[in-house]
Design a binder for these strands. Structure first.
Lengths: 224, 224
DNA sequence: CAGGGATATGACCTTTGAGTAAGTTACCTC
DNA sequence: GAGGTAACTTACTCAAAGGTCATATCCCTG
């Protein structure tokens, strides 16, 4: 009588796993690994905590499964776009377009990929390394093409621009998440306009000197 | 005899506060609010945990003080640059230059500003709102000038580009943190080249159609 | 229809880290 | 030099969340 609701409900393991995984993706992607609680995910999935542990072993194991699902979905989409023959900025826009469309039904997958609160060791770190490599490779390739186009062959420049590009993608997706109702098509068009705006803004060939005299950062009030 | 090392060491409160604050800024900025432990910060500062609580009240209070210090330092620098008369891309580069120089001695201050694991309510949230407003205002202003320069007057475009710009700043600083030995001056020059590269890459006036047929995201393996 | 295995749970154990109580030492003032 | 106050510590409490245990129900097979 103490374990009142115990006993099987006849749902096969594969179904439950999917059910748990869906809830986990949303919670981990929305709140991040650290703030998410296994009990909360179990509640969202409509089952109890021990079942999660029985099927996924640990919080880390559950996150790993969620991460793998999300990362695979997104990496596959990016590779699909990369296989096309567009180059430079156009390739970048196609990638964004593909991501917007892939993320539309489950936008939180994106956050899963770059969760700073996820454990940085063990299997999770290994999986992240695999997918980061896979995605960074694509970005490096695209940026490399662009740099070749304009005659800049400094490898550190390419590395930095890759970082900027990936971060810009992140920012655009985040902005999109914050503006519900904007369709993927509208977002892609917006990105197109933004690129044109940046390209169009004139820039002096030589940068005027700056940063000579420097104040010491003022000793601001320490307390609130 | 039980409290062997107790008793004052004659260090005045203001000195200790500064000492604790320095350690806190580095730890919070490096590991983030959630992963940081008060005991760890106390150890780094060379004192014991209760003294931290006596002077700062709570972990949140300590973070708030750290945040205010870092945010004030950086906001002041950005406002200083904004007061100059450069516009568009040039203004952006000057802002980056100022940030690189300000962050050189204490790079972790940057991470403090955008810590996703920081509490999102209470005084910390209020302080973040204040500084986010202050900094975003500058970015919006700069982006607005640029958009006017190129004739794009869609306010949502400006909003999105602001997000991209702030994220690009973040990416460049992060990249810089990952490449020790690169001087602020070298970084500013690199940013200059990157802008030129992006501007220089040709772009078709009309975007080729993309995103028609869509595969369903494949049902990838659920487990690791 | 006996029993083994898969599905399921309430109650528990354990660890971690925020926060506190209470005592100790030094200095400063009268 | 008595006593008040500021500086400082050890040793604790407590809550939250990860993880486990013992048990309950169902279904399938011989």
């Amino acid at each position: 009588m103490s374990r009142a609701n115990a006993g099987t409900k006849g749902v096969p393991r594969a179904d439950r796993e999917l059910q748990i995984l869906r809830a986990a993706c949303e919670v981990f992607g929305t709140m991040g690994f650290a703030k998410a609680s296994v009990a909360g995910i179990a509640a969202d999935a409509g089952i109890s905590k021990p079942l999660v542990y029985q099927y996924f072993g640990s919080k880390e194991g559950l996150f790993l499964a969620s991460f793998n699902y999300g990362a695979e979905t997104l990496a596959a989409e990016m590779e699909r776009v990369a296989a096309d023959d567009s180059v430079g900025v156009e390739r970048g826009l196609h990638t964004l377009d593909g991501l917007f469309r892939t993320l539309e039904p489950q936008p939180w997958l994106w956050r899963l990929l770059f969760d700073p609160s996820a454990p940085d060791d063990g299997e999770v770190a290994a999986a992240r390394a695999v997918y980061t490599d896979r995605i960074t490779r694509l970005a490096v390739e695209g940026v490399g093409e662009l740099m070749r186009l304009v005659g800049d062959d400094d490898p550190l420049d390419a590395s930095a621009l890759t970082a900027v590009w990936m971060s810009a993608v992140d920012a655009l997706i985040t902005w999109w998440l914050d503006h519900p109702g904007v369709t993927p098509t509208q977002m892609t068009e917006r990105c197109h306009r933004l690129i044109i705006a940046i390209s169009g803004a004139a820039l002096p060939a030589e940068l005027p000197a700056e940063g000579g005299v420097r104040r010491q950062a003022e000793r601001s009030s320490l307390r609130a």
